[in-house]
Design a protein around this nucleic acid. Sequence first.
DNA 1: GGTGTATATGTCGGATATGACATATATTGC
DNA 2: GCAATATATGTCATATCCGACATATACACC
Lengths: 110, 110
Amino acid sequence: MDARKRKRVEAAGWRVGSAAEFLELSAEEAALVETRLAVSGALKQRRVRQGVTQAALAKKLRSSQSRVAKMEAGDPTISLDLLLRAFFATGATKRDLARVLTSRRRPVAA
Amino acid sequence: MDARKRKRVEAAGWRVGSAAEFLELSAEEAALVETRLAVSGALKQRRVRQGVTQAALAKKLRSSQSRVAKMEAGDPTISLDLLLRAFFATGATKRDLARVLTSRRRPVAA
DNA sequence: GGTGTATATGTCGGATATGACATATATTGC
DNA sequence: GCAATATATGTCATATCCGACATATACACC
């Protein structure tokens, strides 16, 4: 649950309209978080595969190495806009994005 | 070209590294803008098909009707985060998002 | 043309993400 | 173990986005 929602829900004293509504909100949040993580992971995968350093990608984006590290770490202070900007900066297309959204999660190396 | 990039490029006096680099940046920008527009259009389509008003969707999002109007208008002051939050709030899934990204643009009614 | 409802546009103070930078922690090759 | 290089983490002032609100326009139906 991201900071914004946590604050909203806390402000409401956790009295959410109905269970169904709550579950629905959760599903929305989940989809959003999953989307972020999927793009984040795909970004790292593409960058590494291309042998590009975080600093080099940052330069291309006119951002900073630290921001790129945070993108790949799934840091919540990184917007989807920035994340997608970086993803596309690796040469990815909309179709690549679609693929990332439908593919099963690749198992994390042991 | 969005405000941020315009500013950056103007600040640099339009001296972009190379033609290839410039074209590549453009492609990135295009992909980002197209993604925004695709989600924006799909959002409106889903909302209308469901017979939900902008105000009702806004309430669900704990946002305002004016913001929803701007989302659907492709207003650049709306972040992709908010756009996707709204899209998912209509019950859409990641898979739906992927479909939106790959489908050909539906012709605008005359 | 008046009333009701939906959508669009503009502005605002406050909240949040931004790039820059400093610095810490891997990782790699010697 | 020690450089060199890559990546991670933390902080800051500023730019940008946020919800809220006011108001304008569009479109019904009467």
